[in-house]
Design a protein around this nucleic acid. Structure first.
Lengths: 351, 351
DNA sequence: ATGAGAAATGGAAACGCTTTCACATTAAAT
DNA sequence: ATTTAATGTGAAAGCGTTTCCATTTCTCAT
């Protein structure tokens, strides 16, 4: 009387298969997994039974004995932002090819939420996790790692955590590429509207900006630099200041897409022609950049590729730990790519 | 000697907890789950043990006994398309609130892939699935449902499958809204560039177009209608035809965002002013529509809300089946919303 | 006191699978 | 023909929980 009366027929188990094939449980399991001896004839009988009974092994039971799952946790801010969309998609591609499956968690950059997700993934005994961490919850992450959950971070790190495999975009290099391009076009008064520099990311992009200028023998002008003071600050004001400068910059470097967004809208009010009156370049390939008229030159972070890399790396770690090999932690740094469109030209001769 | 030498210390089990607390396994389990008797003092001792040992129940083991998981499968095309991004995000919101977790699968509209994912979800014994099905794999879906996996489809159905709960957008109504708006502005020569009508979706949008016209006493003009013949067909040609008509339409209704995309680009070549020379309206709120200059009026499908609804519905079904209640299958139809921006105006007096 | 029912606890079976171990068979090698 | 090794098979012991059942210990009315 323990059988739930409701619902479709009780699931078919390997025991049913074994009975149907007239072999023992052990034998059925052997042909199912392909490991161990089994004569051709048995193999066939069992496989027939499997097919006829429509048997699907219960992964839960399987994991319980084998003590490892095929679950990968993917923790990121959300899925709406195409930045994360591409990342997630990249991960998904590989996940499937490599035989895992993903549990996706959106944190919305909320620490509490992130903690709950980490907790859940621990209970699910996820084999590994790929995350764009919020930066806090150091304790939870540490526990997770102690539990043996292999982890790969993307783009960000969690301080005080001991080394963790990480895949990062080279922000300095990316900003440098953008700037070199602008400089090669003849620009020297290049404005930058940057995110908050307390974030490593933006500090790096600023560094790239400064380095490129200096290397080209141009003295960076403090007047042309705007660093927002928080992630949520509206950049309109900053843009207005730059555009109202007596000697307006001939080019503008916007270090993220939300800045670019307000910039574009603000620019329209000034009725400036792009690229004739001002050249534009964005760090990050937002939809905006492709759609805008004219399309905007960007430094693109290859998010899908990063997703691929992350999953491949995770897989490697997982395989290794299975064989008791302990590889040193890696930090993979990949370089963003300059996509030249139509928003930059040589600066017009000063009137 | 069975203990894996590698890796972090073996997981702590409820048995360890019980020992530490000096109680039996059964008792520990009781306080863990909060079900059944347990004196205040034991409760406390066990909880202390749990905390000190950093115990996390193994959900796999738990599911094995309880015979049900908290896994929800989410099957959709990809995560890059913001349409699906919003949907997924909506689902994720509720999933977390309701205490489940999601396994996300991207099909890329590939039947083979879809089948593999369904297979995987069966083995994982997913409690339920939310899917935007490709439309094929009827057999796999049927099996899934037979296994007792509760399913909610979004936007599409799978033919020959017996009723399945579905959440749909009212495409007729949406198209009708767009058209009514245009008509109210005074348009009567309204062109439509539509997806392939073998897809119910587009058949419905066409119907909305036709209905609205007829109701307004305007005789639909075959000349103004373009229905692509496949999902991948480029719409540039269709647009060119419409724009080169001797009597050019005063407004254009584009029934999906990829059509809108090519349309916008093509339109630029004609140097037409929007909305002065031609009014534009799109079915679907693509990034393009918001960013374009001027921003484009659209009929928006509330994908996040749909995600919410889908998950709530699934939860309801799950809860019900737990209590042996069998509710009839529902088909929830929700109406898209007209978002008025700046791409439509009254038609200019004919010259 | 005493017996009845409630409260607290532990033993053990069950969930579906894998894997070790031992035994039986068969084939190969002397 | 006999030893040796390679094959094929089944019994049984887990894996970490929950839950049923039985037992013991309290609480109170009587």
């Amino acid at each position: 009387m323990r059988r739930k009366e409701l619902g479709p027929d009780k699931h078919v188990t390997i025991k049913d298969v074994a009975e149907a094939a007239g072999v023992s449980l052990a034998t059925a399991s052997r042909v199912l997994s392909g490991r161990g001896y089994a004569s051709e004839s048995t193999r066939e009988r069992v496989n027939n039974a499997i097919r006829e009974l429509n048997f699907r092994p219960n992964e839960m039971a399987r994991m319980l004995t084998s003590q490892h799952t095929d679950s990968i946790g993917l923790v990121l801010k959300n899925l709406v932002d195409p930045y994360y969309g591409h990342l997630a998609n990249g991960v998904l591609d590989r996940v499937h090819q490599l035989g895992y499956h993903v549990i996706v968690c959106a944190t919305d950059e909320n620490e509490q939420l992130e903690r709950e997700h980490i907790e859940m993934l621990m209970r699910q005994r996820a084999a590994g996790i790929i995350a764009v961490p919020t930066g806090s919850n150091q304790e939870s992450w540490q526990e997770l790692i102690n539990m043996g959950v292999k982890t790969v971070f993307i783009d960000r790190q969690v301080s005080g955590l001991g080394d963790v495999d990480t895949i990062q975009v080279d922000n300095v290099r990316g900003a440098h590429k953008a700037m070199s391009y602008l400089i090669s076009l003849g620009h020297s008064r290049i404005g930058i509207i940057n995110g908050p520099v307390y974030s490593q990311q933006y500090a790096d992009r600023l560094k790239g900006y400064l380095d490129a200028l200096t290397e080209a023998g141009i003295k960076p002008d403090q007047e042309l630099q705007e660093n927002l003071s928080s992630k949520s600050e509206d950049s309109t004001q900053a843009i207005n200041r730059l555009l109202s400068l007596p000697k307006r910059p001939t080019a503008l470097f916007m270090t993220n897409s939300s800045i670019a967004n307000s910039a574009i809208f603000t620019l329209r009010e000034y009725h400036l022609q792009i690229p004739d009156d001002i050249s534009l370049i964005i760090f990050d390939d937002a939809p905006l950049a492709q759609i805008n008229n004219p399309p905007i030159t960007v430094v693109a972070q290859p998010m899908a590729a990063i997703g691929h890399l992350a999953m491949e790396q995770l897989d490697r770690i997982l395989k290794q730990s299975e064989q008791q090999i302990q590889q040193p932690v890696q930090r993979i740094i990949i370089s963003p790519e300059l996509i030249i469109r139509s928003s930059c030209s040589s600066p017009k001769i000063k009137r």
